Amino acid sequence: MSDQSHKLNRILVTNDDGIDAPGLKVLEQVAAQLAHEVWVVAPRSDQSGTSHSISLHAPLRISAHGDKRFAVTGTPGDCVVMGVQHLLKDGRPDLILSGFNRGANMGMETVFSGTVGAAMTGMLLGIRSIGLSQAYSDQANVPWHNAQTHAPKVIRDLLAMDWPNDACLNVNFPDCPPEAIRPLKVTRQGLGPLNNVSVRTEVDPRGFEYHWIKLNNGREFDEPGTEMGDLMAGHITVTPLQFERTHLATYNDAAE
């Protein structure tokens, strides 16, 4: 796909970490290798944890941040909708890429993830969509090089799969030395590392309480064959996701 004639026409890039996030800049560079046009529509501020929510009760504002780069005062889902249905209404993108998120998105985390939520919104609009995340162990030294180096081939390989319209893809890049990265592996979703949700209460200088909600990671192992174990083993992982969340065991028991 290095031949210009084999490039996609348009890619829409978004994220949940905000328009100035380092992972977004890396993904823009990757997208430029894959498409003639790269449009960036990202949240003005960090929107981590907003899932695929969209703003139905507040107006949205768009500001330009360079050529084909826009910030939206809303969620990642808002960015996808505004990008596809407003900014690119003259020609829909061939692909939506969301990321690179700072930190892996696995298991139950994907329910909260704005990175995955943007891909879910793209899927809702009928556009092939991929959420991409880079795992790290040191927040000050995220190994962006892993994602930047391997993502172009990974995305090309995934596009060749021609996956169905009712699925989006969740890709995670491992936190390991570049030479230790293992090939792309298709995985299924497990529980992931998310282990609890807690509330921390503090008191501001005026004596009023305020609260922080925190997602707590504590699980070190998951079921065999799920994304967590393969990612920890150094594989780049891809998990197909869908909206369908019916708990089949309960449904079947109740239907009998």
Results as ranks from 00 to 15, higher is better:
M120W: 09
H57V: 14
M108D: 10
F70W: 10
A160E: 15
S48M: 12
L87W: 01
M161L: 12
D17C: 06
A32R: 12
G207M: 10
I11E: 03
P193Y: 01
R10K: 12
K214E: 06
D46K: 02
N196G: 01
N252A: 15
N196W: 10
M106C: 11
G218P: 12
A118T: 05
V197M: 15
I181C: 02
R182V: 04
F221Q: 15
M161W: 09
G18F: 03
G18S: 11
Y210N: 11
A104S: 10
H145L: 03
I130H: 01
G83E: 03
R61M: 12
I130N: 02
L95S: 07
C79K: 04
C176H: 15
L191Y: 08
H145E: 08
A167W: 13
H235Q: 05
L159G: 07
T73V: 00
M120S: 08
V199L: 14
G234A: 10
A35N: 03
V80A: 06
A135Q: 01
V197I: 15
R188K: 15
H145D: 06
L56A: 15
V30S: 08
V40P: 03
L191P: 02
H235R: 01
S129H: 08
P240M: 13
N105Y: 00
C176M: 14
P93S: 02
M106W: 04
A32F: 01
A21N: 05
L169Q: 08
L24R: 07
T246A: 13
I213Y: 10
T250K: 13
G131Y: 02
G91T: 11
D138P: 08
A254E: 08
